[in-house]
């Protein structure tokens, strides 16, 4: 890895971290509302996966979507404005946190239905195969989606049709409030993938380097038309399932343990050790991310409210 790559990856992770912390703050201050799922703690997965994608690659997300959108090149100003329900948001205030869409950067959509975007990603992969060889589709989902029929059906079809697709499971150990051990005996998405003859690997999702290493060949395989892969990233969400979730279902000690595996801090330590970064550069990257997010908050705050009659416009093309 060169210095520039390290800086770029760190920039993405800090941007997501700063964005989510700002969202949490604005939510607490009642400046934004809605059902918000934050990705603090899972930044390495988004940053690593999207570092291999071009604008024309087609990305689908889950309900925990902000980080994916930012990593794909989404504009934090329009994203935050969307969360604030403003007309200058990506979707004009009609989508909100779980329905972000930014096709101009290849971020197709998120979803409020667990596993809901997996079949959509198959269709976009079919399009790539038919019309844009070399382009790929990527879908993020959590461990909760492993028990959805759509996931199993999609593994089957993607494998059968050799679709240019990357499945990324962010296995954060909880389906809403329920630990994975309580909802399945098959605790690894990679086990499911293997059943369908899909190349797969499970990695430490808080280790950015491990994710990079797993994703690179998977993306290359999809681009060359050899079919789908599944990369499973074991990670942890440092906030609740939703913002405001009192998280009574997990122990504080568990949270503390994962805090010591913080993906951003780990990468910083590694990069400094490897001579790719110094403290001053780290500070500058973080400060730049925070300043971008402040500008986004201003943009959202000052954005116009949608016209009232927009409510029933735009239902049909």
């Amino acid at each position: 890895m060169d210095k520039q790559t390290a800086a770029s990856l760190l920039d993405t992770m800090y941007l997501i971290r700063a964005f989510e912390e700002k969202v949490s703050e604005l939510y607490a201050k009642l400046e934004i509302r809605g059902l918000l799922h934050l990705g603090i703690g899972q930044e390495a997965v988004a940053a690593a996966v999207c570092s291999f994608l071009d604008r024309d690659d087609l990305l689908y997300s889950s309900h925990r979507a902000h980080g994916h959108c930012l990593a794909k090149g989404g504009d934090p100003r329009r994203l935050l404005a969307e969360l604030a329900g403003k007309a200058n948001g990506y979707c004009g205030g009609k989508g909100g946190s779980m329905h972000i869409s930014a096709p101009e950067v290849g971020f197709m959509t998120a979803t409020g239905v667990v596993g809901g975007t997996i079949p959509l990603a198959l269709g976009s992969a079919l399009f790539c195969r038919e019309r844009r060889p070399g382009r790929i589709a990527v879908v993020f989902f959590g461990d909760g989606a492993m028990n959805m029929g759509a996931f199993q059906e999609s593994l089957n079809i993607a494998s059968l049709w050799k679709l240019p697709l990357l499945f990324v499971c962010e296995n954060n150990g909880y389906a809403e409030f329920t630990p994975i051990s309580a909802h399945t005996l098959v605790e690894r998405a990679s086990e499911h993938a293997a059943v369908y003859h899909i190349p797969t690997v499970t990695v430490d999702g808080n280790d950015l380097l491990a994710v990079l290493q797993a994703v690179e060949p998977a993306v290359a395989r999809a681009r060359s038309g050899d079919g789908p892969s599944l990369v499973e990233c074991l990670t942890y969400r440092m906030r609740g399932h939703y913002e405001g979730d009192p998280s009574k279902y997990r122990e504080l000690s568990e949270l503390q343990e994962w805090k010591s595996k913080d993906p951003v801090a780990r990468f910083v330590a590694w990069a400094i050790d490897a001579g790719l970064l110094d403290e001053t550069e780290r500070d500058a990257i973080e400060a730049a991310a925070r300043s971008k997010v402040e500008a986004a908050a201003d943009f959202a705050r000052e954005g116009p409210v949608p016209e009232r009659d927009a409510v029933s416009r735009g239902v049909y093309a």
Binding site: K94, A102, T109, G314, A317
Partner: peptide, 9 residues
Amino acid sequence: LRYMSGGQL
């Protein structure tokens, strides 16, 4: 998706 995306899709 048409509506939720604000007409982008």
